[in-house]
């Protein structure tokens, strides 16, 4: 098994997988604790419209997906603050609209494009050197933003009104978090795909929440679970020729199930 590490595509897959795993876990902590899972789902699906547009016009799909996802996230955020429509209804509207646009763009695309399957479900083995550079650079930027605004993000996630009264610019922090979620989801698409990105944002954090009630440890444990799921999932997908993104998510879910069972048995003792 060790010899596969000599392959360039395997090295790229592992580097990308570890960075994306850590990033999804760190951002996932705020998404789960702020109860923003559905907005994460909406942003992930809106990236589909961006990918389809990128494929149609021959542009860089990562850039087009980031733009689509970010604009959608901002529209959801602005509408939430200024509209009487509930947040989940707004997410449902934008989610459906951007997916519909994606389907229309694919319809315009006269040539068959098998890539779309990779974007929907992820293909860790198809990660290029350029993808690795993008993933590492974006991860560094996102993790720096989280480190720099750590206190503000944490207070915002815990008690938004309390944070606002104390002088934290909660509107800025909300839109910053939406931006970080958009970027994180788009760069994770290569690994786990649009459909499964949100699952991977939520599952490692939910698993870690059963193991620790210390916020800093939660970030660390979520990241470790995320990386373990990514590497184990990758090995299984390679060994048994399974879809990589799906195998990684199934591995993460299996870990969640195992820890849930362990917690249940421990509580019953």
């Amino acid at each position: 098994m060790i010899e596969i590490l000599h392959f360039g595509f395997v090295q790229r897959a592992l580097i990308a997988g570890v960075f994306v795993g850590v990033l999804l876990a760190v951002i996932g902590v705020y998404v789960v604790l702020k109860k923003m899972s559905f907005i994460g789902d909406g942003i992930a699906h809106s990236a589909f419209g961006g990918v389809a547009l990128g494929l149609l016009i021959g542009a860089n799909t990562t850039i087009s997906a980031v733009i689509f996802a970010w604009v959608t996230a901002m529209l959801i955020g602005i509408s939430k603050k200024n509209s009487r429509t509930s947040e989940d209804a707004l997410i449902g509207i934008f989610f459906a609209f951007t997916m519909a646009l994606g389907v229309i763009f694919i319809g315009f695309n006269k040539r068959y494009n098998a890539d779309i399957f990779g974007f929907l479900f992820g293909d860790i083995l198809a990660v290029s050197a350029a993808d690795v550079v993008t993933i590492v650079c974006v991860s560094a930027l996102v993790l720096f933003a989280v480190w720099f605004f750590y206190k503000d993000l944490t207070y915002f996630a815990f008690d938004e009104e309390g944070a606002r009264v104390s002088g934290i610019n909660t509107d800025f922090i909300y839109f910053l978090l939406l931006t970080l979620v958009s970027v994180t989801i788009v760069i994770s698409i290569k690994i786990v795909g649009i459909i499964l990105a949100v699952a991977f944002l939520i599952i490692p954090v939910s698993t870690a929440l059963m193991l620790t009630l210390d916020f800093k440890k939660l970030i660390f444990v979520s990241a470790v679970i995320s990386v373990i799921s990514t590497i184990t999932g990758f090995i299984f997908s390679y060994a048994f020729n399974l879809a990589s993104g799906a195998t990684i998510v199934v591995t993460a879910t299996a870990l969640f199930g195992g820890v849930s069972l362990f917690s249940y048995l421990k509580k019953g003792r």
Binding site: L33, K151, F158, G162, A163, S166, G167, I168, F215
Partner: peptide, 21 residues
């Protein structure tokens, strides 16, 4: 149910004064 300790909850009251970074 947020995973935070009592002392950190109180420290949050200082966060805006301490500033980002």
């Amino acid at each position: 149910s947020f995973p935070v300790k009592v002392k950190d909850v109180v420290l949050m009251g200082r966060y805006a004064l301490i500033g980002p970074g």
